[in-house]
């Protein structure tokens, strides 16, 4: 238990959420359930990315009084990595955009065939 620190816990939980999300996408037959699994997959990937930037014992990357107290005016020894956090900020917003687009497509598909099972949509299958 002593070697289990916060970065590795976040990494493990992220990987497990990715596996659960993939299982939902592959196994379910209802379109809304597939979109819900897609959002769980997105959350898992974002957790993995933020966990990779965590450094043990340091604080958030905002320069205010607590950072200056922590490392004697030397910022580089007191904060975690700010680059993955900036990338995850973009990724969360884009994930929301993709989800809303998927739901608009699902509404149009339901209007066309009055059902939500993906087995009924076999117009393009040979």
């Amino acid at each position: 238990m002593e070697t289990l620190e916060l970065g590795k816990i976040g990494l493990l939980i992220g990987f497990l959420l990715v596996i659960v999300g993939f299982w939902g996408i592959l196994q379910q037959k209802n379109i809304i359930k597939i979109i819900v699994s897609f959002t769980i997959l997105n959350t898992g990937i974002n957790l993995v990315m933020v966990a990779l930037g965590y450094i043990k014992g340091r604080t958030a990357p905002i320069i205010d009084d607590s950072v200056e107290q922590l490392a004697n005016h030397n910022v580089i020894n007191a904060i975690v990595d700010p680059v993955p956090q900036a990338l995850v900020l973009t990724a969360i917003v884009i994930g929301f955009g993709v989800t809303s687009l998927l739901l608009a497509y699902a509404m149009k598909l339901f209007r066309a065939k009055k059902t939500l099972e993906i087995n009924q949509f076999n117009d393009l299958k040979w």
Partner: peptide, 26 residues
């Protein structure tokens, strides 16, 4: 969990967009 891993910006964005607006659209 994002807040525990010292990322307050990401925590605010995930709470507002992922937990609020996404559920609303569903």
């Amino acid at each position: 969990l994002f807040l525990l891993m010292a990322a307050p910006d990401v925590a605010m964005t995930e709470a507002a967009i992922g937990s609020g607006l996404s559920t609303l659209i569903f």
